[in-house]
Write a protein that binds this DNA or RNA. Structure first.
Lengths: 215, 215
DNA sequence: GGTTCGCATTTTGTATTCAGAATGCATAGT
DNA sequence: ACTATGCATTCTGAATACAAAATGCGAACC
């Protein structure tokens, strides 16, 4: 067993992302460094380093003298982020080996089909969705692109807690995934890319209903 | 005059980027925190915070126990970055107001025409190129996208020092800019986007000649 | 009563200190 | 002569200490 040797700041960053995913931090809330550091059992130094990393990912904001706070959500920003991710995932798909895509298509289809299981909580749905997109992009050779996508998606995580799982939207999402998988199975890369874009735009609209009007 | 009130870490980050642009740091070199901090006249704490920020932008790498080093260059990574930036700038162009684009097109054309002035050093050429792309994207309403582009381009800066200014490539670059501007003038957004992609790919190929083969 | 000034408290921003890991060299052993 | 081990040195990683800015409250003044 290789023992864990990562800087504290990274472990802290991950822990904070976990807590964020669990809904422990509301957007707009500010961070009290001393309290949070004590809670995590570390000193302020590596905590601040993690906070700075998360700021770079758009999860937090910082203001001179006022410290860090969890970035507030806004419909505008959400639309902006979705546009970016849709573009980047499209690029990732286009750069992937077509043969590989055809190879994973059956599994993608399968995953999409078993998607709308008993109306699970949104955390489970989101995790499944992430897995699916992860597999979809698994053949992309552009490592920087995958890194970038991961970082941007981290910045979007705070939007996921706003919605409650609903039957109909989840079914729609699954249907769109099936569509993409079918195109890949046919070797229709252009069509798949188009469907992927549509999936993001559709998902965005389904989400937007749950995001309060802007600032 | 509004007096400067920014965290040291940000000022340090900018200063380091300046020095990087001036070619003071070779890719692959590692950072000695104590020395650099003394040189900048600050303590290691805000310096490290700046280093962490730059790591998030791809300018530096960090290894447990071994500190930070300027990320080495590689043809592969360069290609990856160009693909990303090309996609994102295309998206930015497509999200811009067509009327605004038509409005700035004349100025873009003008700038492109006066581009190949007496064979300036590459720093000047790069600065001009940045200005041009900056104006091109000035109408993009997607702020997150512009932020992201700025960060990714920061990560690409270290490639700019590898090339020496040459007459012919600079002329080619200018010609491509003219092409893009003309399309915008005609209101041909699709064509402009295509030409922009071509410009990035072309620029990449012109650069690749100067980047040593991979690791 | 309301507003403003000033002080106390809290919290962030930066510096300094301490601890532990990595590197390099010298020496001892084969 | 070459390898391996131990030690000294150097540097990073993390914690603590200090300084400065922001916030909140209360009293004095209008």
């Amino acid at each position: 067993m290789a023992i864990e040797r990562r800087p504290l700041r990274e472990q802290i960053r991950d822990e904070l992302m976990d807590r964020l995913t669990r809904g422990e931090f509301a957007p707009g809330t500010d961070v009290n460094e001393a309290v949070l550091a004590a809670e995590l059992g570390v000193s302020r130094t590596p905590l601040r380093e993690a906070l700075i990393t998360l700021t770079g990912e758009g999860v937090l904001e910082s203001n001179q003298g006022r410290g860090f706070r969890f970035a507030p959500v806004s419909r505008t920003e959400f639309r902006e982020l979705v546009a970016i991710v849709a573009s980047l995932e499209s690029l990732a798909l286009e750069s992937s080996d077509p043969a590989h895509l055809r190879g994973i298509a059956p599994r993608l289809l399968e995953m999409a089909r078993e998607f709308p299981d008993p109306v699970a909580d949104h955390a489970t749905v989101d995790r499944r969705d992430d897995e699916w997109h992860g597999l979809l992009l698994s053949g992309c050779p552009n490592e920087r692109l995958l890194d970038l996508l991961a970082r941007i998606k981290a910045g979007m995580r705070r939007y996921e807690n706003l919605v409650v799982a609903e039957d109909q939207p989840v079914a729609r999402e699954a249907e769109e995934h099936c569509e993409i998988a079918r195109r890949l199975l046919d070797g229709d890369l252009t069509g798949a890319t188009e469907a992927l874009r549509a999936n993001w735009v559709g998902g965005m609209e389904r989400m937007l209903a749950h995001i309060p009007p802007d600032r």
